[in-house]
Nucleic acid binder design. Structure first.
Lengths: 213, 213
DNA sequence: GGTTTTACTGAATCGCTGTTCAGTTAGGTT
DNA sequence: AACCTAACTGAACAGCGATTCAGTAAAACC
């Protein structure tokens, strides 16, 4: 039987775990199933990850970093910032990409009461925000768009005590965009009849356009 | 020991189940804990609900109907429609209300792979949409606001094959608002630093104002 | 080629928790 | 007051699935 170095095996196992979660859910995830998917013994999985809980936490981090990697590549193109922003948003979107979505909803649920998973998600989320935020700043500097007006004047300065740096505004803007995307993903799962992928895509474009005109 | 009629007990148990899910999560929910919370035997819980799975499904439906009940009361006031819309949205919001939120994220996760739960969530979601949608239509008729312009002209007619009834537009609008709220709730859980309740409230107001000017 | 390291397995364990079931008793009915 | 229905319990069962552990054999190292 072929043996592999620890790091390679670990990656294989993580990938298998992600697939398993994606296809049958965290709920019914068994170590044995992950092992079976690779034709290995359950003991080996525990050998590498010590505990199921740790395996799951690592799997989420793995999947998250994967998605981020692709997003960063999309963000590092030579295209204009506004186009790169669209590309990244499209990749994040629950439709039209290979990006897994169910796993994140399961992840949110796991993060509710597991501090390890929760902090993983916090940092992943911050990284996404950074990517978007930087693209927004780039677009502003290139004068491809600017912050829509009502935003800055009304809400921001009136209610928020936070400073008004461009970076901070961009960060808030990114937060709103990601929130909208997450919410639409949930809608897509529970009411696929009421939102087609195209509709959804149009809505997102409109949202972004309204934030950055 | 005091005995109660089946329906009363059932309600008590459902309430206890909801509390338990809210406080420790679906993940670690044990029938015994639910029973302990009421000083009852685990057997009784099964006696009334036959299976744990059924108990959980019933608990979600119960919690959902509860929230809807309150929302409907807020929607049936004598206030102007725009105000009622705000009230309902405020109640749905992850901040400033007693409405439980963690339970819904757990619920989404459960619904991913459990068709029973999934359909419960679909209908609950549709009911929320109906409430909002009707308020929107009422507000339009009273000329308290109208659909923001870019919306109707650009996205709706250009991309969507769906009809352009006022009711349909209102429904779509409700969908977007609910999606945004759901997404913000997730943000609030994983990055409470980046969004204060007030900020969030302001963002939602802005979103609604931008949909209905 | 021998030795050490380390990936890997199979079988056994063991705790946990949903469910069963035979029996008990409260409370309404007549 | 006898009775009957239905709420309720406690103890046992049963199965699942994570983890353990003693042992095997590939590689890597010398």
């Amino acid at each position: 039987m072929s043996r592999k170095s620890a790091s390679v095996r670990r990656d294989e196992i993580l990938a298998a775990t992600v697939e398993e979660i994606e296809s049958t859910g965290l709920r019914t995830l068994r170590v044995a199933d992950v092992a079976a998917r690779l034709g290995l013994s359950p003991s080996l999985v525990i050998y590498h990850f010590v505990t199921k809980e740790a395996l799951v936490a690592a799997a989420f981090a793995h999947a998250g970093e994967n998605d981020l990697y692709r997003a960063r590549r999309l963000a590092a193109t030579q295209k204009p910032a506004s186009q790169r922003l669209r590309d990244v948003v499209q990749w994040y979107m629950p439709t039209g990409s290979t990006r897994s979505w169910k796993i994140w909803i399961d992840g949110w649920s796991a993060g509710l009461f597991d501090d390890g998973v929760k902090s993983t998600f916090s940092t992943l989320d911050r990284e996404w925000k950074t990517i978007l935020s930087e693209l927004i700043v780039a677009g502003l500097e290139a004068e491809e768009f600017r912050f829509s007006h009502g935003r800055m004047a009304t809400e921001a300065s009136a209610h928020e005590p936070t400073g008004t740096t461009v970076a901070e505004l961009a960060d808030d803007c990114a937060t709103r965009i990601l929130a909208y995307l997450d919410g639409l993903a949930v809608q897509l799962i529970f009411n696929p009849e009421s939102v087609s992928p195209q509709t959804l895509s149009a809505w997102v474009d409109a949202f972004v356009a309204r934030e950055l005109e």
